[in-house]
Design a protein around this nucleic acid. Structure first.
Ligand SMILES: [Mn+2]
Ligand SMILES: [Mn+2]
Ligand SMILES: [Zn+2]
Ligand SMILES: [Zn+2]
Lengths: 148, 148
DNA sequence: CTGAAATTGAAAACGTTTTTCAATTATAAC
DNA sequence: GTTATAATTGAAAAACGTTTTCAATTTCAG
């Protein structure tokens, strides 16, 4: 008996939504799931085409749209790129990103509500949403400052 | 005796840096200072050209580079645009942005250090920087939900 | 006023994303 | 398995925002 991989799960979710399972989509999904960091569409295209050489860049864009729709991936803004794509996580989480290797880690447990209260009071705004992202050096990049 | 406007100050700062005072630059500076929200380069171009019709879009881009260099403006990422430009503020401040009219207000007084500590411990990262931005409805847009 | 250097806008080049389209493919019904 | 249908594909072209190139103009120190 085979264990369903995460890629299998994503393909099934796509199918459940009425989309079809194709080799191109599977290649894209596997690239995203294998990466520890957010990738640009062009990077996904280049990696994906190693596994499925016929892959077209247009299909990458179209597949990313659908994966975002399903909440499986998330767009990430960084100083060096604003259209990067990362597997999403469930629940309310924020990102911690290594400025050297790009590794992206989700964390939770922020309670910013006291801050929101204070800012709402001071400004008269009704606060609805927030973006929080931390940047730093991951453990590996602290040890190998010269690498990469 | 004339009061030096904020635009005068910015032009002087540019000159002090070795740049020249020109009509094109002044038009751009005045558009940015008059706006309560972050603007796209194209918007700055369109407004600026009302005051100085000869203005070129290229000059907008080149002037924005210099203003950013001097720390007078800041790039703002939003769901609807990642290269928007807003007058900067001194010190460590974050932005509160109205999702309806775009009005952008700086606020300070976040103490996120306890959070950083906790995340650093949990992840092994050395945290160096953070992005925090709040979104909501400004007082005016709460009152006039249909407007605009 | 003069001259050197900075600045300008138009046009072209660029990289990324979207649209168009005819051919191919996945899937459900038979 | 075969067939019919609608979804999906990649190539090419178009669209888009930004950057580079360049000759003409403008600023400003001397
Ligand atoms: Mn949060
Ligand atoms: Mn962005
Ligand atoms: Zn790292
Ligand atoms: Zn508003």
């Amino acid at each position: 008996m085979k264990t369903a991989t995460r890629a299998d799960e994503w393909m099934t979710l796509l199918q459940r939504e009425g989309y079809r399972q194709t080799a191109a989509r599977r290649a894209i999904v596997e690239v995203i799931l294998a990466s520890q960091r957010a990738l640009e569409p062009m990077e996904i295209f280049e990696c994906g085409r190693k596994q499925y050489p016929g892959l077209g860049l247009v299909t990458v864009y179209r597949t990313l749209e659908k994966l975002e729709e399903l909440g499986l991936v998330q767009r990430v803004h960084q100083p060096n790129g604003c259209n990067m794509v990362l597997r999403a996580t469930q629940g309310h989480q924020h990102l911690l990103i290594c400025t050297h290797c790009g590794q992206a880690v989700y964390f939770e447990g922020d309670d910013l509500h006291p801050l929101f209260e204070r800012v709402a009071q001071g400004s008269g705004f009704d606060i609805q949403d927030h973006w929080l992202q931390l940047f730093g050096l991951c453990a590996a990049c602290q040890k190998n400052p010269g690498e990469n």
